[in-house]
Design a protein around this nucleic acid. Structure first.
Length: 526
RNA sequence: GGUCCGGUCGUCUAGCGGUUAGGAUGCCGCCCUUUCACGGCGGAGGUCGCGGGUUCGAAUCCCGUCCGGACUACCA
């Protein structure tokens, strides 16, 4: 690996630390932002924050055919949810606007700059039809030649030929004329010096036949015009980096530092995609993940603060972030670890705040479409969450207490539904195994009678009183351990063998509900 | 096919010429305890992809090789 000297990066002919860092997150609105996209955005946010620089949001909507309405809103919402900030750009403005490329196209920016290239001979018009292009690739394939556009008829066409084609009204694209027989060098912050034989780089389209610029052109022109100091992007862009570098050279512009970040992979090692499960950023919100957990988790894929640090707040991430900590190799998205981390953040949240988060989560209802989806359909989860949402309305105190008591044993917000259900259900179902294990013992009817009698006539009961009550019975029955008293009581009250401390849950349930459930249990005993 | 990038426990990673290769997650066990969980402690799990060099000494430097991935659009 190459030495990386300064935290902002340096190389001859490249922008250096003299100006403040400017980075951009430039998504194209062609679908929901997924965790990989958002991780990239997060890196930029962390870098900008760490260096006191500027993060910019730019919308790259140069492909009209793939535009998905509503996408821009979701991009903004995703960033906001996870805590990625930007100081300039789409939706907030700035000195380098507009920040949507379709608007920049309307403003004539790309037409103007491509003209410069045309005039200097660095770009040319090509009139190939799509069919001709296809045939060319077919030919290259059959003859085992490198596939790509290395000139064809038009790279060195005479002015006469071009005029003729134009007069005939043939549609044209404008391509960049990549020099031949040259070595194009890219300084990548993470990987060091990258060299490309220009003969293996084909001539990219700059302006499409419909007049729209391609990514190769628009992104680079905008990066220059917006004074971007570091082109941070996924490593899938490395192969086209020489085109971009050459574009800067053709203009005589100073190049930004390239930072090709490792991508996030799925379990099978390929780039993260739908078949790896959830990839949409906001699906994690719907599934009950906390944004601070997701942010912390994805920040650690492809980046490390060094040493053993792992659990970090957004502020700590900003403080610790540096380009040196970026890894060259891709990482796998490990849901198990995310789950652990989410559980940690749930436990780290102050109870009152957690209660309101769970309430908002249950009431927002975003979980419903999520848990209806084929691959992780869970009608039980939906029902339990709906019950919880109702509980927050009708008996907010009980719902709130239930959340507090279950805080220690859930990993997602969604888990609260089923965990809290027995508090709110009129008649919580009995787990057959629990019944079989604890209701068969001879002392159980007497235990239940004892409890009912002691509870009768009371309007409330405290944690300590519940403890005394059960312990008294155990002592009177000559029990050496509490188990035989505690477990059947728990089953009678909750239907389950697992859950919060018995005294805690008894106090929350209150005498009336307990008597009702105890009576029901007794009836069941026969 | 071509070009390029990558390779440390299953996974995320620390490491930047000298370490018993460290941590985390997941898994297993013990402790705590009224259950589950949390928490604490401990364990299994890596011949640092492989083969050559350089060096007194290599996970760390060099070369080769294998495997994986990305790109190869008038998509980004």
């Amino acid at each position: 690996m190459q030495p990386r000297n300064e935290s902002i990066g340096h190389a001859p002919g490249y922008l250096v630390a003299r100006m403040s860092v400017r980075v951009r997150y430039a998504p194209s609105p062609t679908g929901s932002p997924h965790v990989g996209n958002i991780r990239d955005a997060l890196f930029k946010h962390l870098f900008a924050k760490h260096t006191g620089g500027t993060n910019i949001l730019r919308i790259e909507d140069t492909d009209r055919t793939r535009y998905v309405p509503g996408c821009e809103e979701e991009i903004v919402e995703s960033l906001q949810w996870i805590g990625v900030e930007y100081q300039e750009g789409f939706g907030i403005g700035g000195d380098c606007g507009p920040y949507r490329q379709s608007e920049r196209k309307e403003a004539g920016i790309y037409a103007k700059w491509v003209q410069v290239l045309l005039e200097s001979g660095h770009a040319y018009k090509a009139f190939d039809t799509s069919q001709e292009l296809e045939e060319m690739r077919e030919f290259q394939k059959i003859n085992k030649q490198p596939i790509g556009y290395y000139g064809g008829l038009w790279r060195d066409a005479s002015g006469v030929q071009v005029e003729e084609a134009e007069r005939a009204g043939k549609p044209a694209v404008i391509r960049l004329k990549i020099p031949r027989g040259k070595t194009i060098v890219i300084e990548d912050f993470i990987r060091g010096r990258l060299e490309f034989d220009s003969d293996t780089v084909d001539d990219p389209v700059l302006i499409k036949a419909d007049g729209m610029p391609t990514y190769h052109f628009a992104a680079m022109v905008d990066d220059h015009l917006m004074d971007i100091t570091h082109i941070m992007r996924g490593e899938e862009w490395i192969s086209s980096a020489p085109k971009h570098a050459w574009l800067f050279d053709a203009y005589g512009w100073e190049k930004p530092v390239f930072v090709h970040c490792p991508v996030i992979k799925g379990k099978d090692g390929s780039k993260l995609s739908k078949r790896h499960g959830d990839t949409r950023c906001l699906d994690y919100r719907a599934a009950g993940y906390l944004p601070e957990a997701l942010a912390n988790f994805i920040a650690l894929i492809g980046w490390s603060p060094g040493g053993d640090r792992e659990l970090m707040t957004m502020d700590e991430l900003c403080e610790a972030f540096s380009l040196e900590g970026l890894q060259p190799s891709p990482g796998v998205f490990d849901l198990d670890k995310l789950r652990w981390m989410n559980g940690h953040y749930i436990r780290a949240t102050e109870a009152p705040e957690l209660v309101s988060k769970v309430r908002e989560y249950a009431q927002a209802g975003e979980y419903k479409p999520y848990f209806e989806k084929e691959d992780h359909a869970s009608p039980e989860t939906i029902a339990a969450l709906e019950l919880l949402a109702g509980g927050f309305k009708s008996t907010p105190d009980i719902a709130g207490e239930a959340v507090r008591l279950e805080q220690e044993r859930v990993t997602t917000l969604a888990d609260f539904g089923e965990a809290c259900a027995f508090f709110l259900q009129e008649e919580p179902p009995f787990d057959p195994k629990a019944v079989e294990k604890w209701f068969g013992q001879p002392h159980v009817p007497a235990l239940i009678d004892h409890l009912i009698a002691a509870l009768d006539g009371r309007s409330a009961i405290t944690h300590d009183e519940c403890e005394t009550l059960v312990k008294e019975y155990a002592a009177s029955a000559g029990m050496e351990k509490l188990g035989p008293a505690v477990h059947p009581t728990r089953v009678a009250l909750t239907g389950k063998t697992v859950g919060p401390g018995l005294w805690d849950l008894m106090a929350v349930l209150g005498p009336a509900k307990m008597i009702q459930r105890l009576t029901r249990a007794k009836a069941m005993l026969g």
